[in-house]
């Protein structure tokens, strides 16, 4: 039996879409990876990106530190009236967002296109 299957490596891929940026997050955002996600979001916020869409389809796990990283990104974006939007979370992650009531803080979309189209 292998131990390596639980914590799938975190990868992040940035794609520019008009005035928005899609940050595709894949793998697990565990306690030791959350800092990387926060750094990436802070970097995008520092570039005054108007809309950051987190495409979460491939993200299989996130802990509270990872949620905190997204909130920090949201707060930094607000300095320039920017927004963080969440797209395509897996059922377990969506449930986590609902349990923490972060669905009140973030708009959640069923597709990246829908998140991009929202005015």
């Amino acid at each position: 039996m292998t131990n390596s299957s639980h914590n799938t490596p975190l990868t992040m891929d940035v794609t520019k879409r008009g005035n928005a940026v899609v940050l595709t997050v894949t793998g697990s955002v565990s306690m030791s990876d959350a800092e990387n996600l926060q750094e990436k979001l802070e970097q995008l916020a520092a570039e005054r990106t108007p809309i950051i869409i987190l495409d979460l389809k491939g993200m299989d796990f996130i802990c509270s530190v990872g949620l905190g990283a997204i909130i920090v990104g949201h707060l930094k974006c607000r300095h320039h009236a920017g927004q963080v939007r969440l797209a395509r979370p897996a059922a377990s992650v969506r449930e986590l967002l609902e349990t923490t009531r972060l669905t009140k803080l973030f708009d959640i979309y069923d597709s990246v296109e829908e998140a991009l189209a929202k005015k």
Binding site: S64, G68, V72, L75, L102, L105
Partner: peptide
């Protein structure tokens, strides 16, 4: 809601 930490126990 906007506090980045404090969710662990909950």
């Amino acid at each position: 809601l906007e506090k980045p930490s404090g969710r662990g126990i909950m």
